[in-house]
């Protein structure tokens, strides 16, 4: 396996995922999607709250688009190849399974992330809004993104059926997000037993950072748990990714 052959295989995988008109649609959509940042941007005490609100997935279109693109890539390109058997064409190419998996992962997950990262910081830079809060929001999204995509990847490799993988991963992520969100809100509003946030923070970090943005005096109480949540998301993402990789390496077709 030469580097030239590996690069050609990489190019085929990239082209398959991002051929016309995917990139032409995604990039402008992401850039336009940041419109919520300036539209929420009322100065003064409202600033932090507006920034946090504008960066919550679903409200933030680019973050949602990045996850949707990764979902499409993992389930309906990579997963579909496994499901339909067309992955055999790629396994007949002169690359190790390990290399094929990492190339697919890069194209499926890392590329959408880089698109989001690039547009996010470009937009913030243009607005002179790169600060600790926006950096931390970026970090929260990064952890959540890799956690979510690892869950999707795990189900895709485990179930090898597009519909089941989509349903299972959306149900799992939705449940975690909602249950975690409610749990975090209850704990924060209750104002006691903050230690429970160690368990629930990773499920939905946004209520913690929202609490801070509404009431900056909670900074020292909630921020450590938000950081714990981010770490747990990263660790779970890594564990699920490794399980998926190890399973794929010995997978039979």
């Amino acid at each position: 396996m030469t580097s030239s052959e590996s690069f050609q295989v990489f190019k085929i995988l990239f082209k398959e995922r991002y051929k016309d008109p995917t990139l032409q649609m995604i990039l402008p959509t992401m850039l336009v999607g940041y419109v919520f940042i300036p539209s929420f941007l009322i100065r003064g005490n409202f600033l932090n709250y507006a920034l946090v609100l504008a960066n919550i997935p679903v409200i933030s279109i680019p973050e949602t688009v990045a996850v949707a693109l990764a979902l499409r890539n993992i389930v309906f390109v990579f997963g579909d190849h496994m499901n339909s058997g067309s992955i055999i064409s790629f396994l007949m190419m002169p690359v190790k399974r390990r290399a094929f998996f990492f190339m697919s992962y890069f194209n499926d997950v890392i590329v959408p992330y880089l698109l989001w990262l690039g547009t996010y910081f470009w937009y913030l830079y243009e607005l002179s809004l790169i600060n600790n809060l926006t950096l931390f929001m970026g970090l929260i999204y990064t952890a959540g993104y890799f956690f979510s995509t690892s869950v999707i990847l795990f189900y895709t490799v485990l179930l090898r059926t597009n519909g089941a993988a989509t349903l299972a991963s959306m149900f799992t992520l939705g449940s975690i997000f909602i249950v975690g969100g409610i749990g975090n809100y209850e704990i924060i509003i209750g104002g006691t037993n903050y230690n429970s946030l160690n368990i629930t923070s990773f499920m939905n970090v946004y209520p913690l950072i929202l609490a801070y943005s509404i009431n900056p005096s909670t900074y020292f109480r909630v921020t450590p748990y938000a950081i714990t949540g981010v770490w747990v998301d990263f660790i779970l993402a890594l564990v699920l990714f490794l399980i998926s990789y190890l399973k794929f390496r010995v997978m039979e077709f």
Binding site: E16, S84, I88, S89, M92
Partner: peptide, 14 residues
């Protein structure tokens, strides 16, 4: 993979 080709019953390509 560079020396051996495999032909399947159906063309396994996207």
């Amino acid at each position: 993979r560079k020396k051996v080709s495999v032909i399947f019953t159906k063309l396994p390509y996207p």
